[in-house]
Design a protein around this nucleic acid. Structure first.
Lengths: 121, 121
DNA sequence: TTATCATATGAATAAATGTTCAGATAATAA
DNA sequence: TTATTATCTGAACATTTATTCATATGATAA
């Protein structure tokens, strides 16, 4: 099979068997994108600070805004993202919404990554 | 302490004790940023596909480029990022660089996140 | 109802990001 | 040396993203 020139790889060191194997083992595209979205959501310094804070105790939007030092609007946008990805959940008490981590995995993920960070180097 | 108006939070539902506690427990800024950078690196669909492929066996730049369907230049840029964050490592064999996951944590992180993804919903 | 509080939303803007292109290395062989 | 292979790098461009501002919603109290 001859590829059009612009799609050709200039080198000739290709292990076709490994590429095939990688394709067979690969995650379904949809799942891969969801997984990437999850990591990306955790990959913002402010959002990560929010998640870490919520490993402690539940907090309302106003608290969280003060804590990370941005407007409530900004936190609200971020919390929506985290909510859509099932990283946080909330409960209403009158006009106040209290946010918490959605489940234990979130905290575990952070701890595991922290372990990786602290080990090497 | 009176904040300048533009820094004031309009609401009055503030749990100062929780904010203080969150500050005490918070990660050091530097560590928080490193951790976020790590998650962010894993938060790109192509980079995640690379990492997942490398949980299987080591592959050279050329293989990886073909696998995810971008130029070798693009993979090289991505691999540099992953290398800087100690997510992947490489070994040279003549002119060829073989990449592998840097340590077991990386695979564990992906598996844990996948578990989270597959559980709820 | 009206007024107020807590939060959410949409649009706009500035900053960050991923890929490509062109050219530069490093290793090997002739 | 020169030629070739595999990989890397810097600059540029298009896209995405996080925040802000202004406004809207939902809950509560008067």
């Amino acid at each position: 099979m001859i590829l059009p020139q612009h799609e050709q790889c200039s080198c000739r060191c290709i292990h076709q068997d490994r590429i095939d194997h990688a394709h067979e083992q690969a995650l379904a595209p949809r799942e891969n994108e969801q997984l990437a979205a999850l990591f990306k959501a955790m990959g913002d310094p402010n959002r990560l600070r929010l998640l870490w804070a919520l490993t402690g105790e539940e907090m309302c939007v106003c608290d969280l805004a003060r804590f990370i030092g941005v407007t409530e609007s900004a936190v609200s946008h971020q919390l929506r993202l985290l909510r859509q990805l099932h990283l946080v959940a909330n409960r209403r008490e009158g006009p106040v919404l209290y946010y918490r981590l959605d489940d234990a995995h979130v905290g575990e993920l952070i701890h595991l990554a922290l372990e990786h960070l602290r080990e090497d180097k």
